[in-house]
């Protein structure tokens, strides 16, 4: 009997958060109508925004993995001078307010010599599509690095060592043994980076802006509709985002990441 009360107590305390999330989604769902959803879907600006969101999130996830896999491996498996400093630097995008991150990107690419050289010789970044991706990447990659670090810490370095004694070079051991063993972590890191990019707002607003049919993504669309004011439109777009987010989470779990401690 006492045990029953104990678990009930825990369920009420923890469950209140679950109830809040479900209540928010349900409230959004009942606030909008099928007409609002259809209208949103038929709006060319929103369709552009959906396309740009899907493309930029995917590119961001790929770029995040590109840096997260090697960095996660280095942090988990090696000791090097300045490791603590690197580790701390990688936490900056996680702890900084997103607006500050966007502001810093704007300063770097618009108000420094490096930024001016980049604009003159390569391309303009700010207020363009690359700015959307860079703003998403600057936050998402930090989460991907953390995930990959945990993944490599959780897998035994022993198999890699055995592979070396069996004739592998470092690179061969990494590609043939380490990476396949870390595949679930790679998938999780990519998914997290993708989902994080989907929800990014602050840095995009400051660094890329929210120009319709140019740099507008779903998160900024919600803000633009809300400011318009077009609350039903904002909620309809929010529901698209929720649907995409849930789809990614379900996909991640379906791919067998449950029980890895990563999702």
């Amino acid at each position: 009997m006492r045990e029953w009360k104990y678990y009930l107590c825990l369920s009420i305390l923890g469950g209140s958060y679950v109830v809040l999330i479900v209540a928010m989604v349900v409230a959004d769902f009942f606030f909008t109508t099928p007409g609002d959803l259809l209208a949103a879907l038929n709006d060319p600006a929103i369709r552009y925004s959906i396309n740009l969101t899907l493309i930029s999130c995917t590119v961001t996830a790929i770029l995040s993995l590109w840096v997260a896999v090697p960095m996660g491996y280095l942090l988990a498996r090696t000791q090097f001078w300045g490791k603590t400093a690197v580790d701390t630097i990688l936490d900056i995008p996680i702890v900084l307010p997103p607006l500050v991150l966007g502001l810093s990107l704007l300063i770097l690419f618009d108000y420094t010599t490096i930024g001016e050289w980049f604009r003159a010789n390569i391309m303009r970044i700010s207020l363009r599509i690359p700015a959307v991706i860079l703003a998403q990447f600057s936050v998402s990659a930090a989460f991907a690095v953390r995930t990959m670090r945990i993944t490599f810490e959780q897998t035994s370095p022993r198999t890699e060592q055995v592979a070396l004694t069996l004739g592998c070079t470092r690179a061969q051991a990494f590609w043939r043994i380490v990476l396949p063993e870390a595949r679930k972590g790679v998938l999780t890191a990519g998914t997290l980076a993708w989902a994080r990019a989907l929800g990014e707002f602050g840095p995009i607003m400051i660094f890329a802006g929210a120009t319709p049919n140019l740099t507008e993504v779903l998160s900024t669309t919600v803000w633009l509709r809300f400011s318009d004011p077009d609350l039903p439109g904002a909620v309809a777009v929010a529901l698209f985002m929720i649907a995409i987010g849930v789809f990614v989470l379900v996909l991640t779990r379906a791919l067998g990441l449950r029980g890895t401690g990563l999702v």
Binding site: S156, R158, T159, Q161, L164, T165, G167, C168, I177, E181
Partner: peptide, 20 residues
């Protein structure tokens, strides 16, 4: 020499099989 150049057989305590 690198481990590969030594050509030794190595059996760790837990076997460390390649589970993939």
């Amino acid at each position: 020499a690198t481990p590969a150049e030594r050509n030794v057989g190595y059996v760790p305590q837990d076997g460390a099989l390649f589970t993939t």
